[in-house]
């Protein structure tokens, strides 16, 4: 996928290849509209069965920041991420993304601002072809066919999956599926990208390519991972979550250098 990385650097707003001659004057495909900020205060969340998954979180992330979310199994990483897209709503507290409080009034825009990639790509991909799947988000947003075409092409190129466009997602390898899943949200042109364990199940080369991809993205990036090397390579800032609270928040090198902290929270 390295040879296609040029496209990545078109984020945001760089001129697009006009190879298809579509008119997309009223839609600038890869320009995020929001400022990419996240502000969470006093976030509590209880699942219907009574599990207290989040127990008071405060967090501020500025536009374009790259943050790794660390924490042992069941710490609350996925639950937190599902709040950023409005899938879960706080039991107490508030979540703001790109300057909007997540609520029924803003949910349509929140989903456009925050691209959420789930842990299991099989949940995310459901179309007969990769192309159709990547086109889902832009189509739902009501873009013109020309704009949809451009967005799909740019997003697939960004993850190096243009050659998979006509394949069936279900018939791809895990690594290929993960890349396509990333493309499905890149095509929606969000200002915030949220990935749940993107490196799980990747072979060494796939992982290296993922790291390069993450490094090249300019959007705000929040990635949960058990892969400390990935965190070190691509994320200047790290947050450690344990039992529903944030127990450490700082530079990745400091946090990964603090062996006691890592041991205390099941990370080493």
């Amino acid at each position: 996928m390295t040879d296609r990385h040029e496209h990545l650097h078109t984020h945001p707003g760089a001129p697009l290849p006009h190879s298809h001659g579509h008119d997309h004057a009223h839609d600038a495909p890869l320009t995020p509209t929001g400022d990419g900020t996240i502000a969470i205060s006093h976030l509590h969340f209880r699942y219907p069965d009574g599990t207290e998954a989040l127990r008071g979180m405060d967090l501020a992330i500025t536009g374009g920041e790259k943050v790794a979310l660390l924490g042992q199994n069941g710490a609350g990483k996925s639950t937190l991420m599902l709040h950023l897209n409005g899938i879960h709503r706080p039991t107490h507290g508030t979540v703001h993304v790109a300057g909007m409080q997540v609520s029924n009034e803003t949910i349509g825009r929140v989903r456009a601002e925050v691209g959420l990639v789930f842990q299991d790509p099989d949940d995310q991909l459901f179309s007969p072809t990769v192309w159709d799947d990547v086109a889902f988000g832009p189509t739902h947003m009501g873009l013109t066919p020309g704009a949809i075409h451009d967005r799909v092409e740019v997003a697939l190129a960004a993850v190096g999956a243009l050659d998979l466009a006509q394949r069936a997602p279900m018939r791809l390898s895990i690594g290929q599926r993960k890349r396509v899943a990333l493309a499905t949200v890149l095509a929606m042109n969000p200002s915030i990208l949220v990935f749940d364990e993107p490196s799980a199940g990747l072979d060494p080369r796939g992982r290296r390519e993922l790291i390069e991809l993450l490094q090249s993205l300019t959007q705000t990036l929040i990635v949960s991972t058990h892969d400390l090397e990935l965190a070190r390579a691509a994320f200047p800032r790290s947050i450690v979550v344990d039992r529903g609270v944030i127990v450490a928040d700082g530079s990745t090198s400091e946090i990964l250098g603090n062996r006691e902290l890592l041991l205390a929270h099941g990370l080493a």
Partner: peptide
């Protein structure tokens, strides 16, 4: 849930809007 996460409204529309 994954479908919902990708069901955004057109730029500028806050409330949920059915697409397509």
């Amino acid at each position: 849930r994954a479908r919902t996460a990708r069901s955004a409204s057109p730029v500028g529309v806050g409330r949920e809007r059915i697409g397509g």
